[in-house]
């Protein structure tokens, strides 16, 4: 293809500029080190790092994973070394690569979230992804993200201190995700990412015990994709800020589907456990789709669904 016709994959998600729309999803990619052995991280648009908290967290008791048809339940419980060690040890590693760094931030209290945003605003990162949707912790996370007053208070307080693009990650475990999305937008979110995992459960009928040590966990993988596409579609139509779509993406075709539904960029996670090359391969597959369909600019894919 002549240079002039080469697909332009660059995206700008409310100030988060990336060379392509593919981001590794938080919690599935560590801090990038493990997969740097498998491919050049500079091939990705961004990396959303393992969910961070102010202090180190031990995480939940094992087992932390249960395989279910077309997916997995996990109950890791935000095990992480704490935001300070992330800044000290992990940012310098990731900065060796030409890839945007999204810091996924969680807290147990409103004050925790505000402190996280203050600390991360001074760090060398490209975006703060506020995790108001983790289903695996007793306090914070989803408790804030599943009510409009909860999300309004956290996002508006964080907004006051935030000097980075502020992305808010939404939980699907709500009655109407568009209400939550609109509350986040009104409270000052620059962009939204969705969906976090769906709360689920699996039982071993031999032992009669829940498979997960934490009883319940978050469902991800191809099984959740139609729900995620639907929610991205609904939210993209309900707000005017950009939406980053995720939930069961396993290929460039899946990524295109989310973009047609209205996503400005996508995150890929669970599928990488099966094939670590799904992350870089999806970038090429999106470009291939654009070439085939005559899209020069990837941003034109967002919301390009042709409704009946």
């Amino acid at each position: 293809m002549p240079e002039a016709m080469k697909a332009d994959l660059r995206v700008d998600v409310a100030g988060l500029r990336m060379k392509n729309p593919v981001i590794a999803a938080s919690g599935t990619f560590g801090f990038g080190r493990e997969y740097a052995d498998y491919f050049d991280l500079s091939l990705l648009g961004g990396v959303s790092v393992k969910g961070l908290t102010l202090e180190p967290r031990r995480g939940n008791r094992p087992p932390r994973i249960a395989e279910t048809p077309g997916g997995i339940l996990n109950s890791v419980g935000l095990q992480n070394p704490g935001v300070h060690k992330f800044i000290e040890r992990e940012i310098p590693f990731l900065r060796q690569y030409d890839v945007a760094i999204l810091a996924n931030a969680s807290g147990s209290t409103l004050e925790d979230y505000v402190s996280m945003v203050e600390i991360l605003s001074d760090a060398d990162i490209d975006c703060i992804e506020l995790n108001l949707s983790c289903p695996n912790v007793k306090q914070g996370g989803m408790t804030f993200g599943s009510s409009c007053p909860g999300i309004t208070s956290v996002v508006s307080e964080c907004r006051k201190k935030c000097r980075k693009p502020l992305m808010v990650k939404l939980t699907p475990n709500v009655t109407d995700i568009t209400e939550i999305a609109k509350a986040a937008e009104a409270a000052g979110a620059d962009s939204l990412s969705l969906i976090n995992t769906l709360l689920g459960m699996a039982i071993d009928i031999e032992t009669r015990r829940p498979i997960l040590g934490n009883t319940m966990g978050g469902l991800s993988g191809p099984a959740v994709k139609p729900i995620a596409v639907r929610m991205v579609w609904q939210v993209a139509n309900a707000v005017s800020i950009p939406v980053v779509g995720m939930g069961g993406i396993s290929s460039g075709s899946d990524a295109v589907e989310f973009m047609l539904a209205g996503a400005a960029a996508v995150m890929i996670g669970t599928a990488g456990f099966v094939d670590p090359l799904v992350w870089p391969k999806s970038v090429g597959e999106i470009a291939g789709y654009m070439e085939k369909k005559g899209f020069a600019d990837v941003q034109a894919l967002s919301g390009a669904i042709r409704l009946w």
Binding site: R61, P62, R64
Partner: peptide, 16 residues
Amino acid sequence: EQRMGCGVGACLVCAC
């Protein structure tokens, strides 16, 4: 032994 996800240390599920 523990139930694993990624196998390479990224997903943190195989805790002991």
